[in-house]
Design a binder for these strands. Structure first.
Lengths: 216, 216, 216, 216
DNA sequence: GATTAAACGAGACGGTACGTCGAGTCTTGAA
DNA sequence: TTCAAGACTCGACGTACCGTCTCGTTTAATC
């Protein structure tokens, strides 16, 4: 997102320390007071950076916010331990943790969508931000798809179920709760969700795997 | 949202025509230019209403937007025809249609979250808006739960599946696509989703019901 | 300012207690926070009076303010003890005291014109208020003129000096200091002023009168 | 009022053309409709200046008004021709002319205090405006004092009269009439006033000077 | 006693302007 | 060229306060 021109360009080179200072400050503001507290002037002042410099790197406050967030909040990845139940559950838990972080920035009440909501809105305001976010999710989707593919081949996942749909059934409820209903998204919910989704999608033997039968 | 106290209220009563004019104008602006075009001054002027009056009823632009939207975009309800597959599919389709409307206000590209994203952000900015939205969804959730309960009793829905989770698995992906991935949410997707979710949740005979086997 | 038509009018008569309550409250607000604190809504609420009622009596906040002020701040009159020096000095001192009161409303610093300035502005905004104020001053002017006339006849005041001018030379500096320069207006200044003005206007014997030679 | 730092300041320098445009427009509005017509939004628009820029220079509408006025209405100075009678008369006439300008802005009736009244009120509302105005008058006062001092030395002005008081006796009535009584303040009045004040303050020979005996 | 005229309390309403906030651009001088 | 500083534009928001209007209620004089 920042710079990296290849050929040594004329003139004074960009100070890479700037990126760091700015993103740190911005993250701090986001943590403290949420999106509303992310004020460009404030960021510039605290980071001892000119607004010009700032805008040279991020064309918009929204872009800055996205940069901060993608840097600080890990994007849930899909592990591959060989146990699809376990891996999907971990995937869901990672997602839950990310979303929880979004929720709790700005001293929020833990129910409101918080930062995540603002980023969704930002995606609506700036097509390129939308593209970025969608690309990010597409990457994750592809990763999950690949994992499911391997599960089909090795772990008895039914091949007649729509893998994409299956991923939606896991990711969707997480975001739904985070953004809309405000319901809790913890490890317990993540695991129950994965179990429910996989139930019926896996041929017998796998059913007795990692997640057991569990109860709420 | 407006008034209707029962006991003879003192003072000049609120002019209910104001609500109508304002909401109409606001809706028009939203349709035309999206959330960014919803300008309080403009609304006031076009509706021939003083800004003070406007702020007396909706304390914030966000509140006004929510009012407009809840009035103009029908909230998907859960029908009850006796066929749970069909009913849930209709429910999902209704939701899809609502979300599609959110997406396409303001001449959007049909991929970005559009108005819905802004409302989610608004829910994060104003606790009371969050509460309202959550209450709305809770009402819908309860309605769906009741429908599933009846399905357990009459239509062979397995009783050992978590009904709440089941609803999340339907609503979640819809919102996920609407707000995050930008993927299409049409009748086809809605039906596939419901089929996938119910598959395994219903005891044999029902499987051959309304939705058939279908294909992407 | 209030009412009391002569012939008993039809309908409910005005409640004279209202005037009192309102003026008391208004005066209190003026004292506490100056003209800026004189808020019509606040007055109405504190006096437990409807704004309608209030506006039925004083067509404007400015009118109300004037009413309050003319009720609470005594208008300097011209005494007649037979000693023109003494009487004019007392007159000036009375004026000084009134102006001091204006100055010190609203926790002022004692230099700013305070309430008096606002009333002057009000006189500029509403012709009728201007007329009222001018009439008030005209009345005082006439009174002073009459006093000077008697001084001409009995106390050796030179008849070739312009009495009107003489009054201006006394009143003027008082208001000038109160409204413009912020200089002190106390008894000392009042007396020095009168002495200076009368000096030369009075035939010898009076010069050794009430005010002596004084210094400062 | 504008800038003029000496040391080369960092950052974009203030555009001095802005001051000019704004003050011109504001003056125009004042002339046309008086203080009530001095509308910040209007000024900004007509001067093609952002409101923010405007408020950066004048923190308040009142401050702007004062700036306009001090720029456009010449402040009466004290000439020195060697004839104290003549000079003071000119001084008074200058003051009269200024005050007349204040009175006649906004198509006033020529009796009400007009703009001057509003400025007096402004001085009461904002301590710094009061300070500015008082400083302005203090400067004039000092100038007049100096002139009187020279008159004492060269023109036979009695040294035992209080020069400050003498100035008050000239300035005071002018402002008194302008702000309070609404009486005319023309050259004739100014000259009569000066004559009356100096009469008795000057040792014989000077009495037959510039102003003669005059009549109303 | 019924009617009627006016005052009153409460509070919504219209209108106008003010001052503020924040985003993003532009113009300097210095590195 | 980049950077720091800071002025500038643009646009909207929310607030404040004034004075009017519309109810329903109360008080008294009149029929």
């Amino acid at each position: 997102m920042a710079n990296e021109g290849i050929a040594a360009r004329r003139g004074r080179p960009r100070d890479s320390a700037v990126d760091e200072r700015v993103l740190d400050v911005a993250w701090d503001l986001l943590l403290t007071g949420g999106y509303a507290a992310l004020n460009v002037d404030e960021v510039a002042e605290r980071a001892a950076v000119a607004k010009t410099t700032l805008y040279r790197r991020w064309p918009t406050k929204d872009h800055l916010a996205l940069a901060v967030v993608t840097r600080m909040i890990p994007f849930a990845l899909v592990p591959d331990t060989g146990d699809i139940c376990h891996d999907l559950a971990e995937f869901a838990v990672g997602m839950a943790e990310s979303l929880h972080q979004y929720r709790t920035t700005g001293g929020s009440d833990g129910v409101s969508p918080g930062l995540a909501g603002e980023l969704v809105a930002a995606a609506g305001r700036h097509p390129d931000i939308g593209d970025l976010i969608r690309a990010l999710h597409a990457r994750r989707h592809a990763m999950a798809l690949a994992r499911l593919q391997r599960a089909s081949e090795r772990e008895g996942l039914r091949t007649d179920v729509d893998h994409g749909l299956l991923i939606d059934q896991i990711s969707g409820p997480m975001y739904y709760r985070a953004l809309i209903t405000g319901a809790a998204i913890d490890r317990n919910y993540a695991e129950r969700l994965v179990r429910a989704v996989l139930d019926g999608a896996i041929i017998a033997p796998a059913r007795a795997g990692y997640l057991g039968t569990g109860s709420t």
